[in-house]
Design a protein around this nucleic acid. Sequence first.
DNA 1: TGAACAATGGTCACATACTGACCAATGGTC
DNA 2: GACCATTGGTCAGTATGTGACCATTGTTCA
Lengths: 215, 215
Amino acid sequence: MGLEERRKREKENRKNAILKAARKLFFDKGSKNVTVESIAKKAELSKGSVYLYFKSKEDIYTQILLSDIDKFHKAMVNLIQEGQSSSAMLMGLANIYTDFSLNDRELFRIMMNYMLNTDNMNLPEEIDHLIVKATNKTIGIIEEIFMMGIRSGEFPQYIDLRQKRNAIWGLLNGIISLHLFTGTEEKREERIRSTIKTGLNTFLRGMRTPSGNGQ
Amino acid sequence: MGLEERRKREKENRKNAILKAARKLFFDKGSKNVTVESIAKKAELSKGSVYLYFKSKEDIYTQILLSDIDKFHKAMVNLIQEGQSSSAMLMGLANIYTDFSLNDRELFRIMMNYMLNTDNMNLPEEIDHLIVKATNKTIGIIEEIFMMGIRSGEFPQYIDLRQKRNAIWGLLNGIISLHLFTGTEEKREERIRSTIKTGLNTFLRGMRTPSGNGQ
DNA sequence: TGAACAATGGTCACATACTGACCAATGGTC
DNA sequence: GACCATTGGTCAGTATGTGACCATTGTTCA
């Protein structure tokens, strides 16, 4: 409750106001189409002040990405809980991934680009590395869930893990990007979620069906 | 949502932070025993900054008094509502007055001093005038409520208005100050409220009793 | 009683935070 | 390839905040 403390708190608040404004703008328009002036205006500051808190536009951008990647990563890691079927866990993962894509279209776009090997977007080394790591982590988690499903008898033993995992990962990214970058905002979230839900369920049903050998 | 607007807003917030801190301190210790330094500290500012928003300690003090007197005054004026018995209105007035005294012991003390003719406390002309006005207004309202009660037949016609009104006003101030400036904080509010409630009710019952002629 | 001292309202030179006109680089247009 | 519009980044000037200091007042104690 001291004076020093108050000033520190206010500094932090300013920084957060800028980040909040910038996140919204980057989300809406993509990094390239956002001016520092517009960030400043949205944060109710002058442009000069923005540069008191960040050393460049890219600095703002990367800090947002870093924090979002981190959030995403943590959400993924928290996924695997006891007492849930593998199918339920996969549906949970799909939901989290959908949340994330809706919440941060820009980052989703980047991750998609990585997946498609459309190469990097001139991102700093640090970000580049972390995105790859987050992506791999997610894929790894899908794989892990499958293995748990096999151990518990929910899935057949002889499925091709890599193949299934890639199919799921592709399904998610494909459905989301299809809806996210086309059409109107109208009921977008609803459409994505229902498409993913039925698509994933169909896929899992296929895997659990003995007659199909899960292949 | 503009820049100019934000700065204005923040200025206002600073000022309010100082007022809030000062009100608490004045309430607890009385104006004389509060230092500007302590106000600044509580508001998490330096002393110098306090003088950016107020021209003197007295300025802070009077602004608080003015705003509180105004609030008090408005609450009193709002009292007279349709569809209530005069007794209920008087009880309402007593409650508001109790709220106020608990909330602003310092101002209550000043008003008591006026009533007792213990003379002024070197207050600026403006304040002095307003306090007298608020006091008279309150007394006037009590009188008005009595008149309504007479018109509606709730009270006998021949009561001595001035005498009754002074009795009520004295009762309220006496009970509150008795409890407010003596004893401990322990259940103070409860004690004040219950004493006022039964005291006022007894008085009103006496007025409505024909055998006693309301005198 | 009056010298020494403590306490505190108010001031001001210095420090920090904020602003927006300006500059340089970039990309688009004709 | 000259012109222009746009925009990331800079910096001199302004607004806001700080706390050591000063002047005054009241208190203590020899």
